[in-house]
C-alpha cells in the first residue's frame, strides 16, 4: 500500500518533470518520446516542444503587445496599455542608462526583451501546477511542462546568447589583442603571473553564462518541484503551503527576471570598458 502510493507519487513527479520531447530515436527515427528512457536514447538530437511552444508563444505575445503600443504611440496623454508598456520601457531604459555607459542601440532593447520575456515566462508558474498539463492530457498530449524557464535548455540558450554578445563586444571594442591582454594581465600585471591570470580570468569569463542560466533555471525548477510536491498533499491542506509559496513567488519571479537582465547589462558594460 505504502509502496504503491510512493511509486504513484514518484510517477506523478516524474511525469510532471518531463518535457514533451521530439527527437531522433535510434530505433524509431524522428518521433515523440513516450518515456524517460526514450528521452535518454534521443540524447542531444531532440527538442522540447512544450518549452519552445510556450516560450515562443509568450515572446510573440509580448512583442505583439509592445509593437501595437509602439505603433499607436503618442506623446500626449497615454492610455492604459501604453502606460504599462511605458513603465516597463522607462524602468529598463533608466537602468541601462545608469549602468551601461557606452553607446549602443542594442543593449536597451536587449534588456527589455530579457526582462519582459523572462518575467512572462516565469509568470506561467502562477497558474495551478496541474492546469495546463491536464488540459494538454485532454487534448491527447502526453507530457507538458509549461514553464519554459524551468528548462535548463531555455535558460542556457539565453545565457549562451548573452555570452556570445559578451565575446563579440569584448573583441569589437578592445580588439583580439586587447581582449587577450586583459585576460592575461589582470589582475596581476606581471609576465610571470600570466598563466595564473589566464586561469583566473577564463574561469571568471566562463562562469558568467553559467551563473546567468543556472540561477534562473535553479530558482524556477526548485519552485516548480515544490509546487508539484505540495500538489501531492490532500487537497484540503494544500492551501496552507501553496498560498505562502505562491505569494513568495510574487517576489521571486520578477526578481529573477530582473537579476538576469541586470547581470546581462553589467556583463556587457564590462565588455565595453577598456582598461
Amino acid at each position: 500500500m505504502v509502496a504503491s502510493e510512493s511509486s504513484a507519487s514518484s510517477a506523478y513527479i516524474n511525469h510532471h518533470l518531463q518535457n514533451l520531447t521530439f527527437g531522433l530515436h535510434p530505433e524509431r527515427g524522428w518521433s515523440l518520446a513516450h518515456s524517460g528512457a526514450d528521452v535518454e536514447a534521443m540524447g542531444f538530437w531532440s527538442i522540447h516542444l512544450d518549452s519552445m511552444f510556450w516560450s515562443i508563444l509568450i515572446g510573440v505575445a509580448f512583442l505583439w503587445l509592445f509593437r501595437r503600443v509602439a505603433k499607436s504611440m503618442t506623446a500626449g496623454v497615454p492610455g492604459r496599455t501604453q502606460n504599462i508598456v511605458e513603465m516597463a520601457v522607462v524602468f529598463v531604459g533608466d537602468l541601462v542608462r545608469n549602468t551601461f555607459h557606452g553607446k549602443s542601440n542594442l543593449i536597451a532593447p536587449l534588456a527589455l526583451t530579457i526582462f519582459v520575456w523572462i518575467l512572462l515566462m516565469n509568470s506561467i508558474k502562477f497558474l495551478p501546477v496541474d492546469l495546463i498539463p491536464s488540459i494538454a492530457a485532454l487534448l491527447g498530449v502526453e507530457y507538458m511542462k509549461p514553464v519554459p524557464t524551468a528548462d535548463p535548455n531555455v535558460t542556457m540558450g539565453m545565457a549562451l546568447s548573452v555570452f556570445a554578445l559578451i565575446l563579440y563586444y569584448s573583441i569589437k571594442i578592445k580588439g583580439v589583442g586587447g581582449f587577450s591582454r586583459e585576460l592575461a594581465f589582470t589582475p596581476f600585471n606581471h609576465w610571470a603571473l600570466v598563466p595564473f591570470n589566464l586561469v583566473l580570468e577564463l574561469i571568471g569569463l566562463l562562469v558568467k553564462p553559467l551563473s546567468l542560466g543556472l540561477r534562473l533555471f535553479g530558482n524556477m525548477f526548485a519552485g516548480e518541484v515544490i509546487f508539484i510536491l505540495i500538489a501531492l498533499l490532500p487537497f484540503w491542506i494544500q492551501w496552507t503551503l501553496n498560498v505562502p509559496w505562491a505569494i513568495f513567488h510574487i517576489l521571486i519571479i520578477p526578481l529573477q527576471a530582473f537579476i538576469f537582465m541586470m547581470l546581462t547589462v553589467v556583463y556587457l558594460s564590462q565588455a565595453h570598458e577598456k582598461h
Binding site: 518533470l17 518535457n19 520531447t21 527527437g23 528521452v39 535518454e40 534521443m42 540524447g43 542531444f44 538530437w45 531532440s46 527538442i47 522540447h48 518549452s51 519552445m52 516560450s55 515562443i56 515572446g59 509580448f62 512583442l63 542594442l106 532593447p109 536587449l110 526583451t113 520575456w117 519554459p148 528548462d151 535548463p152 535548455n153 531555455v154 542556457m156 540558450g157 539565453m158 549562451l160 546568447s161
Partner: peptide, 18 residues
C-alpha cells in the same frame, strides 16, 4: 533534464525577438 536542440532553438528565437 538533458541539454539538447531546445537550447539552440531558444537561442534562435531569443535572437529574433531581440
Amino acid at each position: 533534464m538533458n541539454i539538447n536542440l531546445t537550447l539552440i532553438g531558444q537561442a534562435i528565437s531569443f535572437a529574433i525577438f531581440v
